[in-house]
Nucleic acid binder design. Structure first.
Length: 876
RNA sequence: GGGUGCAUAGCUCAGCGGUAGAGCGCCGCCCUUACAAGGCGGAUGUCGGCGGUUCGACCCCGUCUGCACCCACCA
């Protein structure tokens, strides 16, 4: 299922090596490349293709405002996944679009209006909505601009908006179906009301927060017929229609069934017995306000109590009298004052911390309010959504997030979907003159005539988002796109909207699409945080505009940093220093490729056969294959941090630091080995660039086209592991690395400058590294032992001996210290291993390879001690 | 009140039943002709506390402490 590699260009590398400057400047290539990708149609997804489809939909950003680092993060992950699949030969759709974001957007535009001193009511519904559309045109453009900068490989021809005609039709269609199936109903209940947004909001749009409140104790009734209730919301007492006590509470048994006087009013209210009351809490007596508290509402229902609404939509008191028109907070203190004046405040203002709900959009304290709203009956939908995961038809990554999913899906309350807003999908129900309602399907004519009007409420914004995986593909029409790209392959989104969005997509997708859930896999990512792990927020001042960093360091650097921090489901800290490090990495790749080009690295022709390859060639090819396999495995497990890190270290530590350095000697010598190395270097870079491309798309494309002459790495084949491994070569090069590192350490300890040439004789015969003498000399800056050479230091390393003429440069004191330290370490090692091996139960029970390993260590320690002792003895 | 997760190098985080790792930061030397956005070398941890299992625990179990987050109609 993979495409062929781009045929190598007939004209060779597109530009001469000398064309590459010594520093990578992202701005020079990013914009140019993105436009090229789009023009060439690389990101277009074709429904008629016979390739296997791979689909990811964008979690649609709100049209309000601009993308933040969290979006950049999410997009990086999605883009990496889709770019890889595209390279693997899948028909890949990365579906773009935006969400109308009901309340959020309406609020933003209302704020704009407020600056002009107007409210939406000054404009009227139609003009206001018109205004939002105009505003959306600007804001949406900004978001697509940011996505282009990020390099998002989306199919722009398929861009959708949740209020598009097509998607609105999808909304009306499913509404009608749910309605006719009895899964949408209208009911009067206590809902969460935002007195600032002037709309109902759903349970999950309420953010609970511990607030410092005050608990006031008030005496209700008089004399014998009195009791004390405690409340944090004294103002609601005007709406009390009962006092409740526990049925088994002896303190109040005599009062149950009696009427007592409600202070500040001329009403009396009954005392009722209800098991909901906790006799241990407060006084054991609760005031009951059915119209303003969800618990009280339930108590009221059980006892047939009247529901007395005492506040309007702004949460101001509507009861005639001294408190009329007061805001709920003003009313609270006014009423406590009045009660105090009557001597009814028994124990006042005990500080009390309790959790209070706030509107997630504007942070206003939510007011529970009795009102008529539209609801989705969630039971059957949620069960199906849960089963899809339980039965393994949908997999959640990381897997421990699944428990959160079930927790939610298995305990879901009916979903309040109506909003008293203007911006959104208007509910397709018409009210008749006699209070009758008709749900109107998308192809039906609404009833006309005297007294008929459409419902004024709009739908919760998540109602349309829940359809996103299929509405964007043309549903309810039976489009080819729908047939090809549904279900989506993967959903990539933050764990924070698991309930808002994922669950609802699961419910509606499974319902609308004949039981087929909307995606196969859900990959949940964490939230972006600052470099100290703190949540990013505008008010805290640590929020970062991704564009700033992209301007300074390039999009690749931002993307690589984000990918490198992406451990599944875990929050991602990101700091500017880290972006800098990624920028350095991009630059390093740039320069390594530049080196390769300057030295004639090539991708043309087949790889030389194994016997034509040097050990270094075989080593790096062996490692390359292993890395391809490793990266693939990490991708399958959404381990972006791991795969990025693996590539980073392979490229830098192995290819750049060692293979490139070793190849310098080979190139200098020339001949067939140099030709082989040129081909291998080309191969390694070609593959590495392709492996890196999904995460770091720009610099890799620029370099890959230059190196290979291919059309674009975007449409190049994803590397496959050729399965070439050479353990001998890996061991051999490891030995070279060890030798070089040890001698380098010695040199550094002697205070020799890194570049200082030192005459030396090498005896590599015992180490099997004789073939590497030239390379070792080059890496260690050793010159041939000339006239008057006299070894002043001799280092046995492995089976090799390096004799150096340091004449004068050596610091014997430092050397003595170093050797003494090494000796102590070796002696400690010997003691430790001796203790282990002397432990019979250890030797008996530990696996053989472990025992063998420790034996080896013991022998090494003995040899070290002998060697070091000898060296110490030789020192003057 | 339930639930989940986390405590590892100065910071942010990987890791794993067999003598601790990365990036950044830090120290020293170096503009060694791909790269100073670089090279080479180096230092650094009672792996949160206490118990237990095991030949062996950073890893498993229990417990304590601290910190996050999610859910919940306690006035």
């Amino acid at each position: 299922m993979t495409q062929n590699t781009q045929p190598p260009g007939t004209t060779g590398p597109a530009s001469a090596p000398a064309d590459l400057p010594t520093q990578y400047t992202p701005a020079d290539v990013e914009g140019k490349l993105y436009e090229r990708w789009v023009e060439r149609g690389y990101f277009a997804a074709h429904a008629k293709s016979d390739k296997e489809p791979y689909t990811i939909v964008i979690p649609p950003p709100n049209v309000t405002g601009s993308l933040h680092l969290g979006h950049a993060f999410e997009h990086t992950l999605i883009d990496a996944l889709t770019r890889r699949k595209r390279m693997q030969g899948y028909e890949t759709l990365w579906q773009p679009g935006m969400d109308h974001a009901g309340i959020a957007t309406q609020n933003v535009v209302e704020r704009e209006l407020a600056k002009e001193g107007k409210s939406r009511h000054d404009l009227g519904r139609e003009a206001f909505v018109e205004r939002v559309w105009r505003w959306k045109a600007d804001s949406g453009g900004q978001i697509s601009g940011q996505m282009r900068r990020l390099g998002d490989g989306v199919d722009w021809s398929r861009e959708r908006f949740t209020m598009d005609e097509g998607l609105s039709r999808a909304v009306r269609t499913i509404f009608k179906r749910l309605h006719d199936d009895g899964l949408i109903y209208r009911a009067e209940r206590i809902i969460n009301w935002c007195p600032r947004c002037l709309t109902a909001i759903s349970d999950i749009e309420v953010e609970y927060q511990e607030d410092d409140g005050e608990l006031v104790s008030i005496r209700y009734g008089d004399g014998e017929d009195s009791l004390v209730v405690a409340t944090t919301r004294a103002e609601t007492m005007l709406g009390d229609t009962a006092v409740a006590v526990h049925p088994d509470d002896p303190r109040y048994a005599h009062l149950v069934g009696r009427e007592i006087k409600l202070p500040l009013t001329d009403r009396t209210i009954p005392v009722v017995a209800d098991p909901h009351v906790d006799p241990e809490f407060g006084t054991g007596a609760v005031k009951v306000t059915p119209a303003h508290d969800p618990n009280d509402f339930e108590i009221g229902r059980r006892h047939g109590l009247p529901q007395l609404t005492i506040m309007d939509e702004h949460a101001a008191i509507t009861v005639h009298g001294p408190f009329l028109g007061l805001d709920r907070l003003e009313a609270r203190s006014a009423i406590v004052g009045a009660l105090r004046a009557e001597g009814r405040v028994v124990d006042e203002k005990r500080p009390y911390r309790h959790s209070v709900g706030h509107c997630s959009r504007c942070k206003t304290t939510v007011e529970p309010r009795l009102s008529m709203q539209w609801w989705v009956k969630v039971d059957p939908l949620a069960r199906a959504a849960g089963d899809a995961v339980r039965e393994g038809r949908v997999t959640i990554h990381p897997k421990d997030m699944a428990s959160r999913y079930f927790e939610w899906v298995d305990h879901m309350h009916d979903w309040c979907i109506s909003r008293q807003l203007w911006w959104g999908h208007r509910i397709p129900v018409w009210h008749g003159p006699d209070g009758e309602t008709v749900c109107v399907g998308p192809d039906e004519e609404p009833p006309s005539g005297e007294g008929w009007h459409q419902e004024t409420d709009v739908l919760d914004t998540w109602f349309s988002s829940a359809l996103w995986p299929f509405s964007t593909l043309g549903w309810p029409e039976k489009t080819e796109s729908l047939a090809t790209f549904y279900p989506n392959s993967t959903l990539v989104t933050g764990y924070d909207i698991l309930f808002f969005w994922v669950v609802r997509m699961m419910m509606f997708g499974t319902y609308a699409m004949d039981g087929v859930p909307p995606f196969r896999t859900v990959a949940l990512h964490g939230m972006v945080r600052d470099q100290f792990g703190k949540k990013m927020s505008k008010s805290f001042g640590n929020a970062v505009d991704p564009l700033d960093w992209m301007d300074t360091y390039g999009s690749d650097a931002v993307r690589f940093t984000l990918a490198r921090g992406a451990n599944p489901g875990v929050d991602v800290p990101i700091g500017e220093d880290w972006v800098q490090a990624s920028r350095n990495f991009a630059n390093k790749i740039w320069n390594a490729t530049r080196f390769a080009l300057l030295n004639g690295a090539t991708v043309e022709g087949p790889l030389p056969s194994a016997d034509e390859l040097s050990p270094a060639d075989r080593w790096i090819l062996s490692r390359l294959g292993a890395v391809v396999a490793e990266v693939d495995a990490y991708y399958e497990d959404y381990q972006f941090a791991k795969l990025s890190d693996a590539l980073f270290h392979f490229a830098w530590d192995e290819v750049f630091d060692w293979y490139v350095e070793l190849s310098k000697t080979t190139f200098a010598a020339g001949g067939p080995p140099a030709d082989a190395a040129r081909r291998v270097l080309g191969e390694v870079l070609d593959t590495t660039l392709r492996l890196l491309h999904p995460v770091v798309p720009f610099v890799t494309d620029e370099l890959w086209t230059t190196l290979t002459g291919g059309e674009s790495v975007v449409v190049a084949a994803w590397p496959t592991d050729p399965g070439f491994r050479d353990a001998d070569a890996e061991r051999e090069i490891e030995a070279v690395k060890q030798l070089v590192t040890e001698v380098r350490r010695f040199r550094a300890d002697q205070g020799l400058q890194p570049g200082q040439r030192v005459p030396a004789s090498l005896d590599l015969s015992g180490s099997g590294l004789a073939a590497h003498e030239e390379a070792v000399r080059a890496l260690l800056r050793l010159t041939a032992p000339g006239e008057g050479f006299s070894a002043t230091a001799t280092l046995p390393v492995g089976g090799a001996t390096v004799a150096l003429d340091l004449s004068g440069a050596i610091d014997y004191e430092a050397e003595r210290k170093r050797l003494t330290k090494d000796l102590a370490a070796a002696e400690k090692e010997l003691a430790q291993t001796g203790a282990k091996l002397g432990n019979d139960s250890f030797v008996a029970k530990a696996p053989d390879h472990v025992v063998a390993k420790i034996r080896t260590r013991q022998e090494t320690a003995r040899a070290d001690i002998e060697r070091i002792t000898a060296q110490l003895a030789r020192l003057p």
